[in-house]
Design a protein around this nucleic acid. Sequence first.
RNA 1: GGUCGGAUGGCCGAGUGGCUAGGCAGUGGUCUGCAAAACCAUCUACACCGGUUCGAAUCCGGUUCCGACCUCCA
Length: 488
Amino acid sequence: MQTLKIYNTLSGNKEVFEPINPDSVSMYVCGPTVYGEGHLGHARPAITFDTLFRYLKILGYKVRYVRNITDVGHLLNDADDGGDKIGEKAKALQLEPMEVAHYYTKKYHESMYKLNVENPSIEPLASGHIIEQIEMIKKIIDNGFGYEVNGSIYFDVVKYNESNEYGMLSRRKIEDMLENTRELDGQSDKKNQVDFALWKKASPEHIMRWPSPWGDGFPGWHLECSAMSCKYLGEEFDIHGGGMDLVFPHHEAEIAQCCAANNNKGAKYWMHNNMITIGGQKMGKSLGNFITLNEFFNGSHEKLDQAYHPMVIRFFLLQAHYRSTIDFSNDALQAAEKGLIRLFNAIKTLNEISPKENSNIDVSSFPNKCDDAMNDDLNTPIVLSHLFDLVKVINSCKEGKHDLSANDIDLLKNLLNKYVTEIFGLQSILKENNSTDINTLMSFVLDLRSQLKENKDWATADKIRDGLNDINIEIKDTKDGSTWDYKK
RNA sequence: GGUCGGAUGGCCGAGUGGCUAGGCAGUGGUCUGCAAAACCAUCUACACCGGUUCGAAUCCGGUUCCGACCUCCA
């Protein structure tokens, strides 16, 4: 098996990936809170870790991939005793909170399907694991790291830090955090500002609530991931992923909870994808550049020049390294779209190349070069650059400038299939002209037109060409005759 | 304010102490009745100021600007 290196936020370094069990990998990724339409910010971790999921399987691992759905309404902020995101939305729409959660879960799944994101092995709901979360709180209390105030349970970060290291993931010092915390008018029940809620007592108007040993309430913000990863992957598992914005406090708190409950920090490798920007700005509702996935797919947002196929979004994300920020703009997406079409045209071309006795160009190094890049912390942009070098090779074979043997053609077909289809999960966006009726009709039209051209009746020939162009059919005149295709 | 990260050619985006990243656009060419498409070739770079070095875009220091987190957030 090849040596895969991944960047571990915990150590701040690229590390050789060695799973706890040699043949299998356990992976947990933070999924969406389902209170609104899926947006670009959801696409990046989904695609980043989908690519990792696919790659680990290609490497021969048995992978259990858990990605949760957060359908429990956590509080909007710490000082607030009132609403949560799902509950607020439910009130606004006069729906049950679970109707809201279910509706947006379905929308999320639809977007993931369009982006060709594979289903995780398990997709647990936070609301379905209240019991596990309560049990975990009990363990934390029993171990002396939780305390109750007025029906709410808090995690005692200061006490925890005496015997453990709070801040190991985000490299924060608890002393700095205690110093820097602003006075918040002393509304909180917490002993220290750095403490966080494990269980929150539900105020009368809070609609999402469950019974517990401490009265009706709802679980804290960070608990579900600890409880569910532990349940399905064990107290110690291989990879925990999510967006960089979750490093603190969410993932830091998860580590603390797992250590406090199980004396085990949970994941061995922590991986974080970077954020996206739109036109150089952070995406946010207040900035007017908040674009949902469906708006990208149908082009309905005013900032978009056109619709972008889900595969263009996927390809565009893969053209950047997952730990870099990536900036969305119409120019960049249109460039990606053209690149993607070029790639798939070359794959099509490869199937049409007739093999020669011997190759006169060496393509044997391509598989290793791609693997090396992928093994270097999933450097998908470098893999793509190699694949585009391959596009040049394929095209020059078509032009008769190079030859490829049958063996080499197979090698390239396998390589492209492995990377483009299986690991990157890309699908062709070329329109297929596979309707028999239209093909018969078009070959008649093209035949007619070539007669016109032979008779030098350029005016009529051009009229046909222009007319077809208007209905999105493009005629391509080559020296071997004319072909046609749907325009993009 | 604290912690951390970034600044690469017209746009996006890799990488690295000396050797072409790649995509898109541009330019030149092939092909064509013309055009389009396609294909081939190719130019423009490493924020600023110092330092280390035979050599730095790459290492070090400083400056400016940008971003993330510190509060729900992918």
